[in-house]
Nucleic acid binder design. Structure first.
Lengths: 343, 343
DNA sequence: GTGAAAGCGCTAACAG
DNA sequence: CTGTTAGCGCTTTCAC
């Protein structure tokens, strides 16, 4: 930021006052057309650019919002970001992304920084909703919306997420509608709300159709990686052919399962059907063609942005917070699920 | 941004002047320990947070830099971003990402916004280095570094990129060292500097080894997608077995080629070897295992950030711009290239 | 219509 | 060591 052209320089050059220049620049009514034109001309000539820092100081508004996410490298979150950014930038906002890498300290630091920089609002996907975070958030004077996370009940904060329970139910329904009864599940050991929802959807849907829950068909160890999926499937293979289908907690695990099956020369979907969740871009690869539940990522970002904007603009008029939003996932039917034909 | 606690409130509560509070907050030397402690106490008590907007106005520095990229959804750019962000945030900078979607208007708007917001510097990957852009950039008063793009010679701006020519040479050298002589190329029609470099690397390396350039082995139509790669390979298939290897402009094209080959039941690497460029994450999938050239993405981001910081900090002391940086790509040898054994 | 003056929240001389 | 003052670039009363 070198020395730059200010409103004062324009005023001086034209022999008028700064307030007149300001008025000309801001389309005020009380200004002679002629002077306005002259100002605009000089603006071009001197290559003047308004200083939004000074403006922010006066207006108590920076037109900047923070978007805190775990990992921008994850297509999931980058697509969400794009959705949020699209909507926000239409309204003149800039988005500052905080890539936390699931590091609790980074999360706190980002929020702290957002406060100091007087951002107008915050969209966050915190991975550590601990006491300290809740404490911070409850002392905040700017609007916050949770994205893909549920805020603690202590916080009066809206959230935007997809309905994981409903999505899981649909996935399993799909398998059942194809005639499957021996349906396994590959999940993760961590009791995240999302994992609980999806697992519950699986169990409830089986029960709804009077299909017995077979604990041998369940693998919950490992992480959420392809490798974990492969290992889990290795364990489950012995249950074929009683087990004719598997619902995986996510696409990564499902792809790992596909990998194991390929290594063991077990045909998909001929011998066993696989259903994922997330619809990653790789799930559409020629070799994979995974049937799965797609989450409306871009929309999620947009909805979060919309909700935040509502809060920013109604900050003083209305104390009610907007409703939280639960979006539907949609079934993507590719080539890993087969209709069972009984003889 | 509701009404908030200012330095004034602290001063009032303690019956001291604002400048004393300011000094306490900024670790100035000339301050009694006792008063400093009292200030810090009151800061906690009132939950005070410095207003960095006001600070920016005084210091003429926002500790904000802009990072303009075509598509944050592309793992390539998201990883670069992470590299840049890591380094920048260590130094107290926030990064504002401008996702341009390769839209010329968006690019200009972002730069304009960066200027108004008085960002301290800019790292950009412009897709439209047209006259207007060059004009804008040459009238800018903040440091700029080009990332993955070469600035017009008119601009005294450093760049950071990988050495595509050298990388392509290495890739083809690898194929040749494996005994291949009939080496095809799948590329793109667009004459981007990158495309030219890689293609030139291919041609020069053949020549260096006295291997004739066979134009029938070249496919330059289509885009840079998997589908284009598949179509290109479909065309090239008739040249097997004289053609025993293919170097693709990028992994996407290479994967498309793999897809075509799989559809035609042609064994890789048994019948034909495939070499890519980029090392996408999907290239490491079980079904793909593509040999390719990996680009040091994270490092690219870090180098760009480093270069920019140098420029920001030496802004007044030194008019020289830092050197541009050309990074090496590295050969990743997986399973799509075979050593030819002659009988 | 336009100018003068105050002030957004903070820092940085300059006195004392 | 601390208070007073001016001012970063801009907007906004309040006069004229």
């Amino acid at each position: 930021m070198k020395t730059l052209v200010t409103i004062k320089d324009i005023a001086k050059q034209l022999g008028i006052s700064v307030s007149t220049v300001s008025r000309a620049l801001n389309d005020h009514s009380d200004i002679k057309k002629e002077t306005k034109l002259k100002v605009l001309e000089t603006v071009k000539e001197l290559n003047y650019r308004p200083n939004s820092v000074a403006r922010s100081l006066i207006h108590q508004r920076t037109y900047t919002v923070g978007l805190m996410i775990p990992d921008i490298t994850d297509p999931f979150f980058s697509t969400i970001s794009v959705g949020a950014q699209e909507l926000l930038s239409e309204q003149g906002y800039q988005v500052i992304i905080g890539n936390t890498l699931r590091d609790s300290a980074k999360e706190k630091r980002f929020i702290e920084s957002a406060l100091e920089r007087k951002m107008d609002g915050l969209i966050i996907t915190p991975d550590h909703v601990d006491e300290e975070l809740v404490e911070m958030l409850s002392n905040i004077n700017i609007p916050v919306v949770f994205l893909r996370r549920r805020p603690s009940k202590l916080l009066k904060v809206p959230f935007v997420d997809v309905d994981h329970y409903k999505g899981a139910c649909e996935a399993v329904e799909h398998l059942i509608s194809l005639g499957h009864k021996g349906i396994g599940y590959i999940g993760i050991p961590i009791e995240s709300p999302i994992a609980i929802d999806r697992f519950q959807g699986y169990k409830d849907t089986l029960k709804k159709h009077d299909i017995p829950y077979v604990s041998d068909f369940i693998q919950l160890s490992g992480g959420r990686t392809i490798q974990s999926g492969r290992i889990a499937m290795d364990q489950l293979i012995s249950h074929i052919p009683e087990m004719t289908a598997i619902f995986a907690y996510n696409d990564l695990l499902a792809i790992g399962a596909l990998e194991s099956l390929a290594q063991h020369n077990i045909g998909v979907p001929d011998t066993i059907s696989i259903m994922g969740f997330d619809d990653l871009e790789i799930s559409n690869l020629y070799w994979i063609q995974l049937s799965t539940m797609s989450q409306p990522r871009n929309q999620m970002g947009r909805h979060a942005a919309e909700t935040l904007l509502k809060m920013i603009n109604h900050a003083n008029t209305d104390d009610e917070i907007p409703d939280s939003i639960l979006l539907d996932s949609v079934l993507i039917n590719r080539n890993t699920c087969k209709k069972l034909t009984y003889q």
